[in-house]
Amino acid sequence: MKGKPGKNEDGTRGRVRTELAIQIGKVARDARLKLKLTQEDIAERVGLTPEVYGRLERGDMLPSTPTLTKICVVLGLSADAVVGLAEPEATQAQPASDEELPPEIRRLLRMVRTMDDEQLAIFKGTAAGLLKLNKRRQQQHKRDKAQVAII
Rank of each mutant, 00 (worst) to 15 (best):
M1L: 10
M1G: 14
P5I: 03
P5Y: 07
P5M: 02
N8Q: 14
N8W: 00
G11V: 05
T12E: 12
G14L: 13
V16A: 03
R17D: 11
A28E: 04
A28G: 06
A31T: 07
L33Q: 13
L35T: 07
L37G: 01
T38V: 12
Q39R: 08
E40L: 09
E40I: 05
I42P: 01
A43F: 09
R45V: 01
G47H: 06
G47N: 10
L48W: 10
E51C: 05
V52C: 00
Y53H: 13
G54K: 08
R55A: 04
R55Q: 11
E57W: 12
R58H: 08
D60I: 02
L62N: 04
P63R: 00
S64G: 05
S64N: 00
T65E: 09
P66H: 05
T67G: 04
L68K: 09
C72G: 13
V74G: 05
L75D: 01
L77S: 05
A79C: 10
A81S: 13
A81V: 05
A81T: 08
V82Q: 01
L85T: 03
E87F: 08
E87H: 06
E87N: 15
T91Y: 09
T91M: 08
A93Q: 15
A96L: 15
E99I: 07
L101C: 11
P103C: 11
E104V: 11
R107T: 14
R110P: 08
R113I: 01
R113T: 05
T114S: 14
M115L: 15
M115P: 11
D117F: 09
L120A: 13
I122M: 07
F123D: 00
G125V: 12
G125H: 11
T126M: 11
A128F: 05
G129D: 10
L131G: 04
L131P: 00
K132P: 00
K132V: 13
R137W: 06
Q139H: 09
H141E: 14
R143W: 04
A146Q: 15
Q147I: 11
V148I: 13
